[in-house]
Design a protein around this nucleic acid. Structure first.
Lengths: 279, 279
DNA sequence: CAGTGGTCTAGACCACCAC
DNA sequence: TGGTGGTCTAGACCACTGC
């Protein structure tokens, strides 16, 4: 290959050598929209566009880079699915403040954080102000929840729905499902469950969970949830299915967490005592 | 609001009532490309387009739905970032076979799977044939690895790079970093580390890891990794930072896993013995 | 009303693939 | 050579925002 570095061929009509004002040069091999995304991403990270502040408008960027607005739109689209930028209709594209929150699953329940919930601790650790809303409903068990709770599909469940915020910004949805009968016995059918929350009430009646499993998977944001989480279309979310079981390994509660991918870091810690010593 | 359900206004020029052949009707409120993506997604899930088979070509779909090719391209783009579809240049867009692999982190090391590696087990469980490649290099510690291994930036590390496949399809990258000195002592500077792998060799010299932490975060696929993983641009990946520490809580090995989001489900299991009984 | 982004089209050129 | 998808433009209309 002699022409390895083969002349980028300035074909596409827009490598027009305009030089009015601050035009930024875009080369050919990598798609323009990707290169522009790279540049904007870099500017954001360098603080040229501070968190919360708007990017230049699409027509402006279009002029700066000498490409059509559609191309700009596509570049910004990349940053949106990455969670770096959020668009507010009619207003502009804004740099998202993304202090990543770390969730240490294996510490959330054990300590049962006297007085403070796990979310509270996680959020304050990065200097954010936590808040949430809660509501309780009764629903029939879906195939999924029925399977996890080991009851028949359609069985009555109590679902405790919570929405979490950090500095007023939505960060997470968590729906906890319990079999109605158990929820009533434990007295967690009202919004307020008392000190220590649902798990403490379950412990009170001897059904305190001690075995936990979590399954993390991906999905693209589903309409309703995406809307609440202020997510961009197409942005990825973590879905966590959390199952808490009592001493006899009977599942007592299932929680489904939905959280915007880029806002969270998930942490797990554990120890394996080697049974037979080290060989 | 009297006009709550306000007439979708069939404005955009393309609600043209063409009826030649098998044209599928597209309504207005939701973007056309999103609706088309919904339809195609549904067809895939119903098996109309079987795993491994191609979607109809863009011009074909363009005719079917009565929209421009660009719109089709955008619809397919959604399916690509969701991991449902993979495009092979010049050939077409193919339905990705996605048997999701479940990785149970908390079981991977404890059992130290006599004879079989954790990946092997995980993959075969869903009926896939595992394979991998490995190589060993020496690199200076980056800020990240240095911090995690508690050495100076630039210190010499041995990195064991592995690439994993299932049925020949790339699924995961895993790079394990060890301080060179330790790696030499443990004898894991060659590709073959003997039965039980690196951790067993570390155990042999009394540095067997028993404390583990994992941190999961998101990233959009980085060029090189995305290429290897056969990923679509823009598709989300899990990054797992895994730290193994010995009895004295000294970190001995750090592994960075990169895996395509839609191919994996991550599972964790643990037990919290309540120290003071259940109140 | 002007400004923002959201979507869509038609037409174009490109790179890659298979024949 | 003809088919596939990848990218880009220009022009257009839309909805939402704020003045």
């Amino acid at each position: 290959m002699t022409s390895d570095d083969a002349q980028p061929r300035a074909t596409m009509s827009a490598t027009r050598g305009r030089e009015g004002a601050e035009m930024t040069q875009i080369e050919a091999p990598r798609p323009r929209f990707a290169q522009i995304a790279d540049i904007l991403r870099d500017r954001i990270q360098r603080g040229v566009h501070a968190p919360g502040s708007p990017l230049p408008s699409e027509p402006e960027l279009s002029r700066e880079f000498g490409v059509s607005r559609v191309t700009i739109n596509r570049a910004v689209g990349l940053l949106r699915t990455e969670g770096l930028v959020q668009v507010r209709r009619g207003k502009g594209a804004f740099v998202r403040p993304i202090p990543v929150i770390t969730r240490v699953a294996t510490q959330r329940h054990g300590a049962r954080d006297k007085g403070r919930g796990a979310y509270d601790v996680e959020t304050r650790r990065v200097g954010l102000e936590p808040s949430w809303t809660a509501s309780v409903e009764r629903v029939p068990a879906s195939e999924l929840t029925a399977g996890l709770l080991n009851v028949a599909v359609g069985a009555e469940l109590v679902v405790r729905r919570r929405k979490y915020f950090a500095n007023g910004v939505p960060t997470q949805i968590a729906d906890t499902y319990l079999v109605s009968e158990l929820a009533e016995k434990a007295g967690v059918t009202e919004e307020n469950t008392g000190p220590g929350g649902t798990y403490s009430r379950l412990a009170d009646i001897g059904r305190g969970p001690i075995h936990f499993t979590e399954e993390i998977s991906f999905c693209s944001a589903i309409a309703a949830e995406a809307t609440f989480l202020d997510m961009e279309p197409n942005q990825a979310v973590f879905e966590i299915l959390f199952v808490a079981s009592d001493r006899e390994h009977r599942p007592v509660a299932v929680t489904r967490h939905i959280m915007a991918g880029h806002q969270w870091r998930l942490r797990y810690e554990w120890t394996d005592e080697p049974e037979g010593g080290s060989e």
